[in-house]
Structure formats: C-alpha cells, structure tokens
Computed example of a mutant assay.
Amino acid sequence: MSEIHGKCEPRFRAVRDAFERNFDEGRELGASVAVYQRGRAVVDLWGGTATVQDGVAEWRQDTIALLASATKGLVAAAAMLLVDRGLLDLDAPVADYWPQFAAEGKATIPLRWVLGHRSGVVAVDPPLTMTDIEQGTPVTDALAAARPAWPPGRAHGYHCLTMGWLVGEVIRRVTGHSTGQFFAKEIAAPLGLDLHIGLPDRKVPQLADLVPPTGQQLLHGRGDPELEGLNQAICDPASLFHRSTFGSMALMANLLTGVHTHQAEIPSCGGAGNAAGLAKLYAALIGEVDGIRLLCPETADRARTVEANGMDLVLRCHTSYGRGFMLPGGPMWPGTCSATAFGHAGVTGAFAFADPDNDLGFAYVPNRMSELIDGGHDRVRPLIEATHRCAGT
C-alpha cells in the first residue's frame, strides 16, 4: 500500500481513496492533489516518488512539478485580473496595445479571440530556438510577422505555444512586467502560491523529475475514438498540430526536459508548481481565500463565457474554450463537471479548474506525463468524480 501524506477532511475521504488507488494500481509515480471549497482547503495530499535520476526521493509537501499547458491557466488568470482592473479590454484589438501585431491582416483581432484560440496565429516560421525565447524580442517579432492559419474569428484551434506569448506581450505592454513577473507580484505573492512562470534558482531543488509515459500507455490513452483526428495530426508533418508545435519550436522534443525550459519564461507551457497552489488560485478566482478574491463575480463569469466550441482545427477533436481557459466538453476535459467549470490541462498530466456552482477549486499535479496531449485522464478522472460526489454532501 502506498503511503499518502497530508490532510483530507472526512467528508472528502473518497478523494483520498481514489488517490491511493492510483498508486496501488500502478498508474502513478508521484503526485499531489488539492481541493478548496468555500475558500478553505479541504484536501491537500501528496505521495509517491519525486526524483528517479539521482536516487529515489519521496514526493514532499514542497515538491513542485512542471505544469505544461496548465500554465495557460496562470496566464489567463493574469489577463483577467487586468480586465477586472480596467486595464485590458477583451473586445479591443491586440494591435491597440501592440501596434506591430497588425501586420498580415491581424489589425482587428480582439484580445478575446487570442484567449479563445480563434485568432489563427498558431504557428511561426522559421521555428524559434531556446536562445530566441530567452532573448524575448525574436519571439515577439516572429508573432507580429506571423500570418494567421485561417481567417481570424472564423474557426478555432488550440494555440499550443503562441497563446501565452501573445497574451504575455499584451500584459508586458500594459504593465511593464513580463507575464511571470506580473503573476509573481500580483497573484502568487499575495496568495502565498508556490506557482511560477519562470522558476527561480532557489526553487530548482524542489522540482520533481518528469517521466514520459511508455508506448503502451500512450496507445491506451489515445484509444478514444474521439481522438482519431488528433492521432493522425500528430503523425502528419503538414498538419496544423505539427506546424504549431514541432514546426514552431526548434528542438521541440526537448522542450519540457531541456535544462533551461523551467527557468525560461514560456507562458504557454513552462510553469511549475503544486496542486495546493493551483487549487488555491482557482478558488481565489471565484471566491475569497485568506481575505483575497482575484476577480469580481462578473469578471469570473466573463472568464468562463464560451468563446469557441466545436471542432478544433489544430487538435482535430471537439474542444471548448472560454477566455484563456478550457471548458467542459470533448475528450480533453476528463470526467463530468458542472457546466460553470473552467480550468486547464497540461501534457505533464496536470489538471486544475474552478467550479462556481459547487464553490470548488481543484488541482492535480503528477510527474508521470499524460497519456494524452493534455491531462492525465486515467488518473485525474476518478479524483474529479470523487470530488464532486463529496462536494454536495
């Protein structure tokens, strides 16, 4: 039997049981799961193995892991905080904040189309290098010069890498701070969150090793018939999926394991943190936590307003997006959820969301990567379902 650490209120015992089963049935390596309800932590659990490269070490309370695309939720939170403060307008053209972005027919693209994956700006050519990313300016120049892959607003497709950089440049031009700096100062510090877009040197020793799934696990995870189109796109160098991932980032295969990745600010996929921090963040988006509420109710409602829904031109499956957040619906969202939920998944297996109907903030952060392009579905689904069963008792 696996040793699980942390706290869990008796009412949420089913979440602990589901977490333990993930380990006992061999699906998990190391992970943390956390739940807030009505602004209070009711689950904060962790267990398993954090490091495997230099001797086995246990997952501890302060262990953090890479979040991959769950980082987009942090970026969306930062953007919506600026909307709440009246410093960003979702309907304003991105070019109003960033004039160079108007090139190649992009002058009228509103910010909400970028947040909702409707802008068409999903790829850059030639592909960016890690040096480009660390310097910053080559990235913004490439995005300003990019041509949309479809007429903006006419369709939607997952902005795998570009969403964070596009929104991040708008944040920088409005605040004078990078996305990581703004998030650290205005969100993470006030709430005491161990969440980072650009990991400080002092935090590197806390970082868990990232372990990819086996080929058999990948085949199992992608066996859903709804993912047939995605599976074909992954293998097709001419697909929008390839162009927006491997074709837009040199050495893409090393992106999440490269020595600089977690310390560079890659706002679409380079964040790091733990479940306790993520759950608290999402709880603070919809209610008061430790005396802090990030968004007023009206802005939180705008964050989860459907911006795009239906066939995704990049992932080639059904997806639904609000303003920077994933919404329930389609194979990328595991399990059943309240219709008001909004959150984000990551290829590392991380998944987090807010559920206003049940006043919940939920997060799961593992270090064995997902069997899918986003979210560790086989492991997180029973945790989500247990959370919802317990929330109403």
Results as ranks from 00 to 15, higher is better:
383 L>V: 08
177 H>I: 03
51 T>L: 06
157 G>T: 02
18 A>F: 09
344 H>W: 15
304 R>M: 12
200 P>H: 00
161 L>P: 14
262 H>E: 04
392 G>W: 11
346 G>T: 10
356 P>C: 07
261 T>I: 01
139 V>C: 08
117 H>N: 14
49 T>P: 06
244 S>E: 07
336 T>Y: 02
159 H>F: 05
146 A>W: 13
277 G>S: 12
318 H>P: 07
132 D>S: 08
68 A>P: 09
200 P>D: 07
349 G>Q: 03
290 D>P: 04
114 V>M: 09
270 G>C: 06
279 A>L: 13
232 Q>Y: 08
215 G>W: 02
267 P>M: 01
204 V>K: 09
63 T>C: 05
83 V>A: 05
210 L>G: 02
69 S>P: 13
271 G>N: 04
208 A>D: 08
289 V>D: 05
389 R>K: 11
5 H>W: 09
328 P>V: 01
290 D>Y: 03
76 A>Q: 06
104 E>R: 14
140 T>W: 11
2 S>C: 12
121 V>Y: 06
189 A>K: 12
75 V>M: 08
37 Q>E: 10
7 K>N: 14
260 H>Q: 14
272 A>N: 13
102 A>W: 03
23 F>L: 01
364 Y>L: 11
319 T>V: 12
383 L>N: 02
175 T>P: 13
7 K>T: 15
95 A>W: 08
327 L>C: 09
315 L>F: 09
260 H>G: 01
389 R>P: 09
45 L>A: 03
326 M>Q: 14
269 C>L: 14
304 R>T: 10
181 Q>D: 11
206 Q>G: 01
55 G>I: 06
16 R>N: 02
93 P>R: 03
377 H>C: 09
118 R>G: 07
167 V>R: 01
336 T>E: 13
4 I>K: 02
234 I>C: 10
303 A>R: 02
245 T>F: 02
122 V>Y: 00
114 V>Y: 05
355 D>I: 13
232 Q>F: 04
152 P>I: 00
142 A>C: 11
198 G>V: 14
57 A>K: 15
23 F>V: 08
170 V>K: 01
199 L>T: 13
372 L>T: 12
181 Q>T: 15
105 G>A: 01
217 Q>Y: 04
126 P>A: 02
311 M>G: 00
371 E>R: 07
65 A>H: 05
385 E>R: 01
218 L>W: 06
359 D>N: 11
73 G>L: 12
120 G>T: 03
328 P>K: 00
89 D>N: 15
262 H>N: 05
148 P>R: 01
30 G>Y: 12
42 V>N: 02
339 A>D: 14
255 L>E: 13
343 G>Q: 06
393 T>V: 05
